[in-house]
Design a protein around this nucleic acid. Structure first.
Length: 356
DNA sequence: TACATTTGACCGAT
DNA sequence: ATCGGTCAAATGTA
């Protein structure tokens, strides 16, 4: 009896996944006929691939594909263990498989899920650098993490006190490649830094030949891309004499234009590494079976990388525009952090069809 | 003086 | 008991 129900449920899930894949493909088709950015298309492609991955895992019994109920996977940890290994793998598939081994998919989470987005940043300069994602961050802690050589820095939005902004971010230098920083964003920016973000974007527009697509100015942000673009990088030269800063630079995230001449060495890639990722994307794609239990769902212009399509982009003059323009077609908003609440989704329904 | 950073202590989850 | 995350007092900086 139970088994049969389970099978029916799996069948339904499978159907949902396939349906979702179809819808995504249709959306992709639509985007192909319009002037959507490559990033948007990549995004859809990655979604499709993941959807089919899930469907396959359902078929092969390696997982139930319903990681919407899965326990939280310490994404940052797995990533830090092998920060450069995502280019050829499908981390989410792995997560899915892992999740499905011994969990009861109908169980509720014990804790509020955290939706994280991670990014790898390679400075490549040997100099400490700051990243500007359009927001002001204030460091509130630093911790040595077990199994890692570098401490993890904890940052929260400067406007937490004044505007109650709950966005936080974790920054940690990669063990495998000290030039790479792993950024983990958490929470939704509820603060208003629109003008600042807009200013940064204008800078890009002025400096680059390529035009930014500002399709949804009030919803999702391009800050992730900005943070690794030229406006977001600057060389922090103060307090370099301290050991701590040597191994772990302080990220102040001002909107200071890049001052380093080594911008071209900077590499950007972002990874979304959350176990519940796909299910929470699902509503965006109209999956009928999706349930909302989480407080936030994450949308990142960079999540293509989380499906094995790691998008490392050289921030040379030509490459930079690629970084900037592609993600902007997906997001544009004061919410530099790309997490957003379900409520936000409801208030901006047009986002779904347009972007996802 | 106001704001940011540092860092040890504390807390909750596992 | 351990570990990751956060707090908050002390300290630094502009």
């Amino acid at each position: 009896m139970e088994k049969r129900k389970s099978m029916e449920w799996e069948q339904k899930s499978l159907s949902n996944e396939l349906t979702q894949g179809k819808e995504l493909a249709e959306q992709l088709m639509s985007h192909l006929h319009h002037s959507s950015s490559q990033e948007t298309k990549d995004f859809l492609i990655s979604k499709i691939l993941f959807s089919y991955d899930k469907a396959l895992s359902l078929l092969t019994g390696s997982g139930d594909g319903s990681d919407g109920e899965s326990k939280h996977i310490p994404a940052h940890e797995s990533m830090l263990e092998s920060p450069t290994s995502f280019g050829n793998s499908s981390p989410l598939s792995e997560i899915s498989d892992q999740d499905c081994k011994d969990k009861n998919v109908f169980k509720k989470r014990k804790t509020t899920p955290r939706w994280t987005k991670e990014a790898k940043v390679s400075s490549g300069t040997g100099l400490d650098g700051s990243l500007d994602d359009g927001y002001s961050w204030r460091k509130y802690g630093q911790k040595d993490i077990l199994g890692t050589n570098h401490p993890r820095g904890y940052y929260r939005c400067t406007h937490r006190g004044t505007q109650g902004c709950v966005a936080t971010k974790l920054v940690q230098k990669s063990d495998a490649d000290p030039t790479i920083f792993v950024l983990t964003y958490r929470g939704l920016h509820t603060c208003s830094q629109v003008s600042r973000s807009a200013r940064v974007k204008e800078e890009f527009n002025g400096n680059q030949n390529k035009t930014l697509e500002v399709e949804k100015p009030n919803q999702f942000s391009t800050e992730m891309s900005f943070s690794f673009g030229r406006a977001g990088l600057r060389v922090k030269t103060d307090r370099l004499d301290t050991r701590e800063n040597d191994i772990f630079p302080s990220f102040s995230f001002p909107s200071t234009p890049i001052e380093s001449e080594n911008v071209g060495d900077h590499i950007f890639s972002a990874i979304m590494m959350e176990s519940n990722l796909m299910d929470d994307y699902a509503p965006v794609f109209g999956s009928p079976a999706t349930t909302f239990e989480s407080d936030y769902l994450t949308v990142s212009p960079c999540h293509v990388s989380s499906f094995g399509l790691v998008h490392d982009v050289q921030t040379s003059e030509s490459g930079l525009t690629e970084i900037i323009s592609a993600p902007t077609s997906v997001t544009n908003s004061p919410n530099g952090d790309l997490d957003f609440s379900i409520d936000d989704l409801e208030f901006h329904p047009d986002y779904f069809g347009l972007k996802c």
